[in-house]
Design a protein around this nucleic acid. Structure first.
Lengths: 407, 407
DNA sequence: TCTAATTAGTCTTAATAAAGAACAATATCG
DNA sequence: CGATATTGTTCTTTATTAAGACTAATTAGA
């Protein structure tokens, strides 16, 4: 039961019905391709005539194309299959992280077109934009004309205002109120969209083409790395909040008297489960201390710690187990607050999922109110899926498929 | 950018545009009544002819009626004013609480028709249903024929499945998987809707007619009493979650090593700020101890404590101040998680708002990530507004005004 | 008092949508 | 080969918005 906002509504015009059904048809083709007009009509529960009309409109806009004539199963005329048209079109996803920046080229459905490339992130925005523009142009020229690129999506670890195209605050990069979108768009001559990395990850799951991920109208993506980023999806839409800061579960406390967090507060979930927090526990360091420069601990990563745990290092096992417990306790807060249908979780710690899963699950059960809540589906998203990059791609590729705004 | 769910969508039919515009017109009349057809057309940005057609449809369904001829401001024909038709129609709201049960009769816009009545809650469901049915019938007969009642909405302190009409678990009432809706509907011969009290409070704000409350597409209602109930509103819709348990911020921890909570866990926000928690701190009792039966502490309420604080009792002041601080710290979790445009807060503690506001606000600032978040609007909803009762009423009165489901 | 201007509401016509039916082309099966 | 089933197109019917003409009511001002 949604209320119509009497100060901001959209009346239905002559073309509104058509627009709605057009988008439904497009989404069904996306989800079921290859598909015939007749099957489309059956799925939509409309007459074939209507489906034909919608299809011809989509064809004329080159959003879809007619492929080979299919084999007829029973008797009767053989169907002509329809496909989303991604020929000579591509999308670039960029994932800016504190240490490195990653680039991926995909088609309009987010299917990978080449290998992921990366380079060291230069924290000077202007330099980074120039380097990005240069590398993207080069990569695009390998695949097709640069003009065939529909746009570039960028995932940024920090607070982003996508409407204005600005990075409001990105602590790990030292950026504050930086215009990232427009200079990059000018340098490339292609539209650019930017988004917070947690929300980008959530987007990636919403718009994933694999059928087993779709249908999750309410879900949450938890990304554990240097910090903890969370993207919340409600009714198939990423929750943005009044000031673009929704989803900061990383700074919801486990214990307000807990360890100091990079945000200035104490006891944030992030201060217990981030990679830095886990490593600090292993080295018996305080999280607030500057990271020592000595050779061993400076380069020692969470993967190294997990390797030691697998090799039998008792202290490593204990540290990882406690991270797992804190992880579950924090997930419980998410379940209590939002009761999502599914939680996606990504980050280095998930490479140890087989070790930590029972601990995470039992901690989750410990603090959730109901049996159902404790049993909330948890899906691990491996790093190889590149959720941030795929979310960045969705920023550009998805709007063509989005539901029209109505009422 | 919302994704169309390819497994659950609604295609636009012939009547869909009309349905959308009809609901918009109805909502505008609700928001701006009295209003003329011509003004309606101007607000909707359609020709007067279209508005007239929509209006005549609404008239024929008796959803609205033509009232007096208005005064014309300049020259020209005088307008006929349109109003939501609530003549000979009413709605009953019921608020079941652990100690007492409250009843309120309103019109379709939630305008109070009589005084709030109440009686002691009998925890035996069957007995309570019979008593409720009896009292509602009696109250209705005072105003008009019982048949003119559109329905009864019930707010329940606990986990509710509105679709099935069942109370899944209500600890303070000792109910578990109780069918409340159907027996009451049978006993009354009127449709009944039930909802969790936190979500009901949020509903009340969403559907409030006062123009200064509307327009808050994203908001949160925090109700502090025996427990802490939270209702979350996203895009003008109450967030329900996969298992109807979304919004349980009361059991998000401040400190996992904190005081024992009634839910079995430790350190929940509720265990710091509920009325019981505050009183327990005052009496130096443990929250988990059974409440003593001795005359003084058994009947001593939060209002009494606030009165003592206002009278200068230093201990009372200290206890209330610490509750205020914990309140702000917990609100910070809500702001970090959801970044709502506005927070509504209700409960006995708000009678001391002038005392505690600065403390709540500074605690909120302390743990929010941004200046904006720390400045999130907080609106106190006084007990006299009866948010639970008004939310219960909205369960019945609002569906006629809800946005149609589309795409 | 009469006239012109202005507003409200109705009615007619055109454009565009879905709903439905009919039909041609094509394939399978007996 | 003929009956039957399926795909895709086309045409008619019905419903709805859009644009504008028209009528009625009302007021300001000559």
């Amino acid at each position: 039961m949604r209320k119509i906002n009497p100060h901001d509504f959209k009346v239905a015009r002559r073309g509104t019905s058509r627009e709605i059904n057009r988008q439904i048809a497009l989404n069904l083709i996306r989800a079921h391709q290859p598909i015939s007009r007749a099957d489309l009509a059956r799925l939509m529960n409309v007459r074939r005539g209507v489906a034909s009309l919608l299809v011809s409109e989509l064809l004329s806009e080159s959003l879809i194309f007619e492929g080979a004539i299919g084999e007829s199963v029973g008797r009767g005329r053989r169907p002509t299959f329809l496909y989303i048209d991604s020929r000579q079109r591509c999308v670039v996803g960029v994932d800016i992280r504190a240490s490195r920046t990653y680039i991926l080229v995909t088609d309009l459905l987010g299917r990978q077109l080449g290998a992921v490339s990366s380079f060291q992130t230069n924290r000077d925005v202007d330099v980074l934009i120039q380097e990005l523009a240069h590398r993207i142009k080069q990569i695009l020229s390998d695949y097709m004309e640069v003009g065939a690129c529909e746009g570039v999506g960028v995932s940024v670890p920090g607070m982003v205002d996508p409407a204005k195209g600005r990075v409001v605050h990105a602590p790990t990069l030292g950026w504050r109120d930086v215009n990232l979108r427009d200079p990059l768009a000018v340098a490339l001559g292609i539209p650019v969209q930017i988004e917070n990395s947690g929300k980008a990850c959530a987007l990636a799951q919403v718009w994933a083409t694999r059928s087993d991920v779709t249908g999750s109208g309410n879900s949450v993506f938890v990304s554990v790395s240097d910090g903890v980023g969370v993207g919340v999806v409600v009714n198939g839409e990423v929750l943005r909040g009044r000031h673009n800061t929704a989803g900061e579960f990383g700074h919801v406390p486990l214990s307000i008297d807990g360890p100091k967090c990079s945000c200035g507060a104490t006891g944030c979930w992030e201060a217990y489960v981030s990679n830095l927090a886990t490593l600090s526990r292993y080295f018996g360091r305080d999280l607030s201390e500057p990271r020592p420069r000595d050779s061993e601990t400076a380069t020692f990563s969470l993967e190294d710690l997990i390797a030691r745990a697998r090799a039998g290092d008792a202290k490593a096992v204990a540290v990882i187990n406690s991270t797992a417990r804190y992880l579950g306790l924090g997930l419980a807060s998410i379940v209590n607050a939002l009761d999502p249908a599914r939680i996606y979780i990504g980050g280095e710690i998930t490479t140890a999922w087989s070790l930590i899963e029972p601990i995470v699950r039992s901690a989750l059960r410990e603090r959730t109110l109901t049996e159902f809540g404790g049993a909330t589906e948890i899906h691990v998203v491996p790093a190889e899926d590149h959720p941030r990059l795929r979310g960045a791609v969705a920023l550009v590729a998805a709007p063509a498929f989005a539901a029209p705004m109505v009422a």
